[in-house]
């Protein structure tokens, strides 16, 4: 079974992101870049499917700058078999839909049985990519999955998607798109052997023309990034616990009207 895992390189979760000189983007100096955490669940799940079935191929894909190759190498070190790097001036300033179109095109070429995404990239937090790619391919999709089992014949998957208050278990014919929610698995660390072996694996460069795509204008335009409005200064309520609690409840009721 061939499984394709689109991933994205994002700033580490502990990063204090700052607005850049161009206020439409962030200041990238000093940032530690990582594979978006949800994407790691997707890579892990793909590797587990391959290991469980005893055969198959896991292909990691990303669209991004030269630096994004690091993220692909991390996936190769975890155990992905090869990687595709989509990089082209046509995709500079790409919005979600442009990226979705590029991914859908590369998926058509690769023709995997399963596409596994992370539920969202933790930079723009749009969370739209899995569903958009599925739509462009005309495939079924289940987002935020917490469990999955591929049928023995490899023709369908039983996947549990997290919804409010429940887990909806769907039977879905392959090919399909799934997106991983935290809790699906615990991603492995790459091993040193995996890291040393990653450089022997292929990272293929893919241009827009290779996919028969031309530049398309972004549909969603970023006007500017803004810092959060500061919260009004708070106060620490002094005193013995019993008194402090009384005063807190009074304030919540009378001043804040929060209860």
């Amino acid at each position: 079974m061939k499984i394709l895992v689109p991933i994205k390189q994002v700033p580490d979760t502990a990063t204090q992101v700052k607005i850049g000189a161009d206020p439409k983007g962030i200041d990238t100096t000093g940032i530690t870049w990582i594979v978006s955490p949800y994407d790691e669940y997707a890579v892990e799940e793909a590797l587990r499917i391959k290991e469980k079935r005893g055969q198959g191929e896991v292909v990691a894909v990303t669209l991004g700058s030269e630096r994004a190759k690091e993220a692909l190498r991390s996936c190769l070190a975890m155990g992905a078999d090869r990687a595709l790097h989509l990089s082209d001036p046509a995709w500079e300033n790409a919005d979600t839909l442009t990226v979705a179109r590029a991914l859908a095109a590369v998926i058509k070429q690769e023709a995997p049985q399963l596409v596994l995404f992370g539920r969202q990239a933790i930079d723009d937090d749009m969370g739209a990519m899995p569903a958009q790619v599925a739509e462009l391919l005309g495939w079924p999709c289940a987002s935020w999955i917490m469990e999955e089992t591929i049928s023995d014949d490899g023709k369908s998957v039983r996947a549990g998607r997290q919804v409010e208050g429940a887990l909806d278990i769907f039977n879905i014919p392959l090919p399909c798109v799934l997106s991983a929610q935290k809790g699906l698995n615990e991603p492995r660390y790459p091993t040193l052997k995996g890291i040393m072996g990653a450089k022997k694996k292929e990272i293929k460069d893919v241009k827009a023309a290779d996919l028969g795509l031309a530049a398309d204008g972004a549909q969603l335009l970023v006007v500017a990034l803004e810092a959060l409005p500061p919260r009004p200064p708070g106060r620490v309520i002094p005193g013995e616990p019993a008194e402090a609690v009384k005063e807190l409840v009074r304030s919540l009721r009378e001043d804040a009207k929060a209860i």
Binding site: D95, M126, G127, A128, M129, A131, S143, V163, Q219
Partner: peptide, 22 residues
């Protein structure tokens, strides 16, 4: 919500328009 965050994303792709999520 679980349903609509996916639905609106699919719809945006089908209509070829932008989506501001969340």
């Amino acid at each position: 919500t679980a349903r609509q965050r996916e639905l609106l994303a699919r719809l945006a792709a089908r209509l070829g328009v932008g989506l501001s999520a969340d």
